[in-house]
Design a protein around this nucleic acid. Sequence first.
RNA 1: GGAGAAAUGGCCGAGUGGCUGAAGGCGCUCGCCUGCUAAGCGAGUAUGGGUGUUGUUACCCAUCUAGAGUUCGAAUCUCUAUUUCUCCGCCA
Length: 429
Amino acid sequence: MLDLKYIKTNLELVQNGMGKRRANIDFSSLLNNDDKRKALLLEIEALRHKRNVVSDDIAKIKKSGQDAGSLIEQMKEVSETIKRLDKERSTIEERIHGFLISVPNIPHEDVPMGKDDTENRLERTFGTPKKFDFTVKPHWEIGEDLGILDFVRAAKLTGARFPLYFGKGARLERALINFMLDTHTSQHGYTETLPPFIVNSATMTGTGQLPKFEEDLFKLEGSDYYLIPTSEVPMTNIYANEIIDESMLPCKFTAYTPCFRSEAGSYGRDTKGLIRQHQFNKVELVKLTTPETSFIELESLLANAEKILQLLELPYQVVTLCTGDLGFSATKTYDIEVWMPGQDDQGKYREISSCSNCLDFQARRAGIRFRRKGQKKPEYVHTLNGSGLAVGRTFAAILENYQQADGSVMIPDVLIPYMGGLKVIDHDA
RNA sequence: GGAGAAAUGGCCGAGUGGCUGAAGGCGCUCGCCUGCUAAGCGAGUAUGGGUGUUGUUACCCAUCUAGAGUUCGAAUCUCUAUUUCUCCGCCA
């Protein structure tokens, strides 16, 4: 959420930012309501002050044994007025809050203008796609042929877009999770967490999934609970409504969790394979930082995520999302796209991580603040998050990049210890 | 699921209708003192909003888990929710 004061003093800048996102937002009603709110507040506070003073007088009068009847009558009226005005005020405040909470973050000036993902800016590539001397297969064919993936039975158990792993496939998924977590904790300094997979609406609001994107979430019927679409949600909210010590920053968390997304509106896209599932595994990175370090921390977070692909020797490219592709809470986002030789005949780069700086946008919603040493006023932290990485898609990328002519799949060197020494998944697996 | 108890500031803890934004203690910060350490003394130590002055200070309003209510007046009374604890039942 943007700061109302900031909006008021930088209206043009804010409107400009919204324009870049192609979000047409009229701020005039907001400013109007804020003026009303302020006028009401002034009136209410004056009346409350009067009531406080007179109530004290009443106490004194009563103590001395005199009659305070007329004053009490007067205050009855004052209290009625306060009640009435206060109701008006809370209606207006709800309106203001409801408005503010639906306004997206302002894109950083470094973010390229563009309408959709075709206009993202390529930053760099790593590795070169391997040349195959046989016809490459998409990962779902490889996985089903090897008997390590079974989408048909998964659909029987639940429905479309759910995964079922078998044998060495299940083992590979687990190996990836452990490898990613180990790397981030022991080499990149993140603290491992294991958060709830279900959170309440306040938590979802804190990171920006609510109120605007409820249709993307799975909600538990008859409750205020939602399945997390990413562990960014519980991890970023760990210190919600708290003031933490400056010495705790930067605060770096990582977690493996399954992620649940309704994928509303994506019918017909990526209907096959592990790319777009209602349930998938992800290792996530979250940072809380001071405002002045957040962009440096974004670069290192991105580097931490890239490191996984480098160690797995999977080719990838990094893009900066353009304004039209930028998420609601982010001011700047890098996507890491891994090379998938089995996609679209000649291969394709597919998103495997999204690393964002949200500035104080989430922190303001969730109330995450810190206090500098020797300073009285607490400040909002900056929040960052990134996938490190999406495990299912990494699994898919390994299948496609490490496939061999006979249909078997080599295990990347760094994963062999995690696979109990197994070097290849073949038909005997 | 049934029965009961509880929720106060960074922490502990007092407070059952009227200068209580909240005693006392601990912790922390600053200063003084003590020729080490310790102890002692003094001061300070929540958050949000607003007004004025303008960047020093002042003043006002709100907040004792949250929301609603009773009252001239609520930390204190009532209701609801949430969380925690105890007992019973059930359960990985």
